[in-house]
């Protein structure tokens, strides 16, 4: 029967979409201002980043993280605290030539830079970033 099959497909799609989207979206937008400058615009589910840690080659990951355990712990603590914060502008630098804006917006860590060379916009869900850092911390070997 077509209806039950369609129902199952839609239900599966709903669950899959919910799983993929539950951590929010990462957005990276870089526009070089010079003539012929490149424009990179990424918009991907944050869950992909959390999966990335699991998919990375374990030995190489451990090697890279060997001396980062302490920094990762600091980042995890900072991100956990940032998750609790309301929307706010953390840093703002304004001059005639450049503009830097670091803020928390709707649970996202948002960085905007506009200088004579580039325009950069990065939006990362704080919860997903914390998960990634937490996973990386779990993978990092204790310093000997």
């Amino acid at each position: 029967m077509p209806i039950p099959l369609m129902g199952k497909v839609l239900l599966g799609m709903t669950v899959a979409t919910a799983v993929v989207m539950k951590d929010g979206m990462i957005e990276v937008n870089v526009q070089e201002k010079h003539e012929g400058g490149s424009h990179v615009h990424l918009f991907l589910p944050a869950t992909v980043a959390t999966w990335g840690v699991q998919l990375a080659p374990e030995a190489r990951l451990k090697e890279h993280l060997r001396h980062q355990r302490e920094n990762l712990a600091i980042a995890r603590v900072a991100l956990r605290e940032m998750e609790k914060l309301p929307d706010a502008v953390l840093v703002e630098v304004e001059s005639p030539k450049e503009h830097v804006h670091v803020a928390i917006q709707g649970g996202n860590f948002v960085v905007d830079v506009d200088d004579p060379g580039d325009t950069v916009h990065v939006r990362i869900p704080i919860r997903a970033a914390r998960k990634v850092v937490q996973d990386l911390e779990g993978e990092s070997p204790p310093e000997t």
Binding site: E70, A73, I74, V77, A78, R80, E81, M82, K84, L85, A88, V89, L90, V91, E92, V93, E94, S95, P96, K97
Partner: peptide
């Protein structure tokens, strides 16, 4: 002439927690 303006807003709880986690 550059007329730079800098604004920094830091929640004290964040500063405290981050400082408390650093051992360096």
């Amino acid at each position: 002439e550059d007329g730079e303006r800098v604004r920094v807003n830091v929640p004290i709880s964040l500063a405290r927690v981050v400082l408390g986690s650093i051992q360096k």
